[in-house]
Design a protein around this nucleic acid. Structure first.
Lengths: 200, 200, 200, 200
DNA sequence: AATGAATGAGTGTTCATTCAT
DNA sequence: GATGAATGAACACTCATTCAT
């Protein structure tokens, strides 16, 4: 006997509720500082239900890090390195990226925990690292095009990409308290400068 | 009858050994992921000895974060915002800062943990934040002077300072694996660009 | 879906088993001399189960002292200070009290520990003290009535009550080893004498 | 080379200071609730010194219970069961006993702990029990004499002795808070009644 | 004799995981 | 599938005792 659609929907909602709660709690208190009980209570589900949806705590953590990555990954990779109107595309990309990072508040803490404890969360770290490599590669292509077009100064494209990503992550750490405010947009010009534009 | 000089020296060494081990382990596995037993074994002292030198685990963590801060703080504040040869001072400062951050490898993870879990490590966070504010203020003065001298483009000095610090922290996170290599120096030009120099 | 009736009954039995074991062990070895492990093993439950039923050791101790008090309290207050046949009521009360104290063997040690360490078990002590005050008050009324009726010699009713309670407690301490024997009944006449009866 | 008189005196004083502190602390917090560190600090001696004077904690506890017993024992046995003026001797004895118990405040807690935990403090308990037996025997002789002289009603002398000792101990437990006040003397008539005097 | 650092067994408590209902 | 009681390994911390100085 299969489950009714309603039941299936219900389960999906429940799983989501657990996952979202987990992201918040893990990001505030870390992996070890968060208990399964905490998550269950905050998510309003019974203790045992957490294990119905996730094999164990480590899997839950993994899902909390990796599942949102799909969305963010799309948003962050959503630029055209071969765009004709290069400078506009660059500005648009940076503006979009800043927007995404401004909204990441809880989630980025998770990423930082995984990076900091990469030996403990090995497979999770590797998935994050894959995305990081992908983003870096696409940025390198972008930079190379900008330089070919004579719109960016000549400087190492890989270091440019790393600097840029680092700035975004560093900002997220430094502005932890900030409301996801318009203030973030003020950093767009600084990010652009890292790319070495010949004219602003 | 007090303790002999030799004993006192020995105790100092022992305390140091515990503290340095704690920095490494806390930075690799976080506060909750590190056990006092771990630290004792790695430091080659008995379990009980840790408590001879530190009241409890929280105090040990606090010391692990705050005591090295004295050294780093001096190094990072060691620049002259009113220097006559402004551009040279700016380059020298950035080169020095990059050097310091290149060597921070384990320690910065600790800082990141404190920022990420600032509610849990409240008093520790506040001390870090004090230093951060101090550094920011001094950088702002520097930027203002550079702009007054006509050597830097006009842009908000506070945002400049935040961008710069964020870049340094972001780099440290992204280059976790890197040997404290000469590679780091390649990021100096990118950091300089954040300050908006009129001529490179 | 709640728990089945059978489960609920089982839990009740388990809680009781822990509590009774705790009373025995605490009374034999004191609060600090008894470990939670001891109690769990003697009660035949797992270590963790103790904490399923009692928040912590202090709460368990509190329950071990206070819960039986309800029963004993009823038994000890079960006399009529205004009875018409005064001397019979007095004798009946004393006989009953001696019976209760004869059966208290383990429990009274607990009470004694709480009194002796009243600063450490403050709230528990206060609850015991409340009962003590209630018993004393009711005894005072009884004595006053006996004196009004001309059946008891005139002596301070409060001191009479204290002497009587003290005798009961002192006996329990001194007869620790005694089987809860008929021997106890031999002390009834001595207790009566404390009340100063004009004719025996 | 022997120790000077001054040194010997000093050691005696130090040992005494430790012992007296131990009596107070053990009586307030029990054997397990008191740490050697506590005692050392309160006595104003170094931690290690405690072990210079007492082999271990158990020995210290034993001494704290047994050494004062010499004094109290003498005071409590200081009556003449064959006195000619029987009733006066009885009253004097009771008055003296009440005085001693009024002053016993801390010490009696110790006794109670030993009785309550007699299995744990076995040898200490036995020494206390010896004294108890001695006191009981002497009281029995006294009672027998009083009955022979026709001054006390006929009742079992052993139970009389036990009742009397129980009353004293019970009072001490019940009046823990009381200043060692004159109030205690008010209980003399009640104690006398336990002996069954034909005329008061 | 005096000191207090060193040690590690033992304590109360937490918590991920299992499993019967 | 949902629940939460049961379990015991693991943790931070305490403390009696030892011992070098």
């Amino acid at each position: 006997m299969g489950l009714s659609d309603e039941q299936l929907l219900n389960m999906k909602l429940k799983r989501n509720s657990i996952l979202e709660t987990a992201i918040i709690l893990f990001s505030e208190k870390g992996y070890q500082g968060t208990t399964v009980q905490n998550i269950a209570k905050s998510a309003g589900v019974s203790f045992g239900s957490v294990f119905t949806y996730f094999d164990n705590k480590e899997h839950l953590f993994h899902s909390a890090v990796i599942e949102p990555l799909q969305t963010y990954s799309q948003q962050l990779l959503n630029f055209n390195p071969d765009a004709e109107d290069f400078m506009n595309e660059l500005k648009k990309m940076i503006t979009d990226h800043i927007d995404v990072f401004a909204g990441l508040s809880n989630y980025l803490n998770l990423v930082v925990f995984v990076i900091a404890q990469n030996k403990h969360h090995k497979s999770t770290f590797e998935e994050l690292d894959d995305f990081h490599a992908k983003l870096k590669e696409k940025l390198i292509i972008l930079v190379k095009n900008g330089q070919k077009l004579g719109l960016l100064k000549i400087q190492d494209p890989a270091y440019t990409a790393i600097s840029y990503i680092s700035l975004l992550m560093g900002l997220r750490l430094n502005l932890t308290d900030e409301p996801q405010s318009t203030m973030w947009q003020n950093f767009v010009p600084f990010a652009i400068q890292l790319f070495g534009p010949k004219l602003n």
